[in-house]
Amino acid sequence: MTDVTIFHNPACATSRNTLALIRHAGIEPTIVEYLKTPPSKEQLRELVAATGQGVRALLREKGTPYAELGLADPKWNDEQLLDFIVQHPILMNRPVVVTPLGTKLCRPSEGVLELLPVGQLAPFTKSDGEVVHDSGVRRGC
Rank of each mutant, 00 (worst) to 15 (best):
G119F: 10
A49N: 04
T30F: 02
K75V: 10
P29Q: 02
V4I: 14
V96H: 01
R45G: 13
L19T: 08
P95R: 08
A72F: 05
Q43M: 14
G129M: 00
L116C: 03
T14W: 04
R107T: 03
F84D: 00
D3P: 07
P89T: 06
T30M: 13
G26H: 02
I22Y: 00
T30H: 14
K36N: 14
Y66I: 04
L47M: 12
R16Y: 04
P108W: 07
V118I: 10
V137I: 14
L115E: 01
A20E: 04
A25I: 03
L116D: 01
T125Y: 01
V4L: 06
D83R: 02
P29T: 06
D78E: 15
P108V: 12
L19E: 04
E68M: 11
G111P: 01
L69V: 05
E46S: 15
G26R: 09
R56S: 01
C106K: 06
N9G: 09
G26D: 03
P95N: 03
I31G: 08
P10Y: 07
G136Q: 04
R107F: 07
L81N: 11
G70D: 13
A72T: 12
W76S: 08
I90D: 03
S135K: 10
M1Y: 05
M92W: 02
S15C: 08
T5F: 10
Q80H: 02
F7A: 05
G111W: 00
V86A: 15
R139E: 01
P10G: 13
D134P: 13
G136K: 01
V48L: 05
G111R: 14
Q43A: 15
D128R: 02
G140M: 10
S135Y: 02
H8D: 11
L81T: 12
R45M: 02
A20V: 00
C106D: 08
E130N: 07
T64L: 12
K41Q: 13
K75Q: 13
E110T: 09
H133S: 12
C106M: 09
F124S: 05
M1G: 10
E28W: 02
V4Q: 08
P89Y: 11
H88T: 03
N77H: 12
L21I: 15
L69K: 06
T51W: 00
R23K: 15
V137Q: 14
K126R: 15
W76V: 05
E46V: 11
L59Y: 03
L21D: 08
C106H: 08
R16S: 06
P89Q: 11
P95L: 02
A11D: 14
G129Y: 02
D83A: 10
L105P: 07
E61G: 06
L101K: 15
G129W: 00
G111M: 05
L19R: 06
I22D: 00
T99G: 07
E68V: 12
I90R: 08
K62Y: 00
L91T: 12
L113H: 10
N17W: 01
